[in-house]
Amino acid sequence: MKVDLFDFELPQDRIALRPVRPRDAARMLVVRGSEAPFEDRGVRDLPKVLDPGDVLVFNDTRVIPAQLEGRRADGEARIGATLHKRIDLRRWQAFLRNAKRVKIGDSLVFGGGVTARAEERHADGSLTLFFEGEEPVEVLLDRAGTMPLPPYIASKRGVDRQDLEDYQTMFAREEGAVAAPTASLHFTQRLVDAIDAAGIGRAMLTLHVGAGTFLPVKADDTDDHQMHAEFGRISQATADQLNEARAKGGKIIAVGTTVLRLLESAVDEDGLIQPFAGDTSIFITPGYRLKAVDGLMTNFHLPKSTLMMLVSALMGRERMLAAYQHAITNEYRFYSYGDSSLLLP
């Protein structure tokens, strides 16, 4: 499909630069089927919209301070690095600003005396960085890195200490993401307690979101776009919980596109979710038949993005464009710090 089919006009003042407070005060647009009226609700209405026996599935990845600023060791070139995917204990795949000024073998010096060596260049333009020294890379990043806010936020106001809290979900446990699973940013303990009281289940998996989520689709056709691989894990207990809930008639609701993509990577042809541990680069576009999920809670996404294509696969392209136009007209807040939608095909 042509990428331009997923384009829409978004006024700049609809891009949220800060989240609402408290988190569960965000609005939520409920989109059902292909013809039902759109419902302007709030995230706090979630326990009323879903049914007892349904299960919300969350991503427990934790965002690391993966944005680094520094120079080539000879001081002649300023370099920015956004870590993308862990390779091993000391190596990360990273996208570099000013990457053409870096040769294999060059040493890069970042803040706090952190140094890394460029080891390998990949087909997508990223490089493998080997972090030198004996301290764990996590310690080095805490010293030298900043939160990797999406460019549409960072370019408008920069990054500050408040983002250390705002850009982390309440479920964050497993370190390794360089972008937040933003659908979960709306949850508070109060909302979770209400969900539990309503008899709605909760399940957890891990997908470490990579920097590829920030990259635009450069191809003109979806067939020519290659997704970046990200590491995910689904335990046997989570797979059993979800399969049992579905067998009893409950709906599986993915909280975020990261959850949906991992579940669809782990489901078999019979619709049963299997344990999973490995990389996924699944690219979901219209025509893909979803087998693992019955709904999706997600924020509003960028025009012509892979995520706009994913929600169009779930609900239909024209339906989603109509929903987004409704959201724009009714002044919903867009993107990572914005409002939410609940998509129920």
Rank of each mutant, 00 (worst) to 15 (best):
G75Q: 06
L89G: 01
R62S: 14
T128M: 10
N98W: 10
A66M: 05
G112D: 14
V102P: 09
R97D: 05
T115P: 08
G80Y: 04
F131T: 02
A118I: 05
L129K: 15
A66G: 10
L96H: 04
D124H: 03
G113H: 15
E69D: 15
I79V: 14
V63Q: 02
V109Q: 15
A66S: 14
G80H: 08
W92P: 04
A116N: 07
G112A: 05
E76T: 07
R78L: 04
V102F: 07
G111P: 10
G133I: 03
V102I: 00
T128P: 05
L56M: 04
L56H: 02
D106C: 12
P65T: 02
R78Y: 06
D106T: 12
R101F: 13
V114D: 13
R86H: 06
N98M: 12
A118P: 07
R90N: 11
R78T: 14
E135I: 02
L108W: 15
H122S: 06
G80F: 05
G105S: 12
T82D: 01
E132D: 12
G133Y: 02
D88I: 00
T61P: 10
A77T: 15
R117M: 12
D74W: 03
A81S: 05
R121E: 11
V57H: 00
R71Y: 14
R71Q: 15
A116T: 09
R91T: 09
L129F: 12
D60V: 02
